[in-house]
Amino acid sequence: MENKGWDEFEIGAMLRTFDGSVDNIAGTKQEDRSYSENSSYRASVADWRLIKPVFNKDYCIDCQFCWVYCPDVSIVSRDKKMVGIDMDHCKGCGVCVEVCPTNPKSLLMFGEHADEETEIAQWPSKDEEK
């Protein structure tokens, strides 16, 4: 995409989020939408992250707390089930881990370069004190 300079803008410039005509966005899931190059959905903030959440499906109860409290629309939930994490948009704030009610938590933060499978294999067991 060709970026315009500050003095090349037209007054009242408009960015279109979608390509083509759009109807019923509220009923269309993100993967079915035709995002244009101007939607930040196409962008990535993955390089902001120092730590990343890792999702362990075995302990998840699909309560959806992480979905509702994720500030970056990065928790992917489909058909009332937690599916995974959108790593392009996650900034690694760790809110999802804090609000996760399971014991042990089904989401934990690890260093950005940690290997997901290794971490899931050595997931902490139930914390009896809680």
Binding site: G27, T28, V68, Y69, V73, K80, G94, V95
Partner: peptide
């Protein structure tokens, strides 16, 4: 909350709000 989670978001990620900002929530 399960029913709520079937909503298709009309606000996108990769905005530049700070990590953990409550605005987007």
């Amino acid at each position: 909350l399960k029913e709520f989670s079937t909503s298709a978001d009309r606000f996108e990620g990769a905005n530049l709000l700070c990590p953990g900002c409550a605005h987007s929530i």
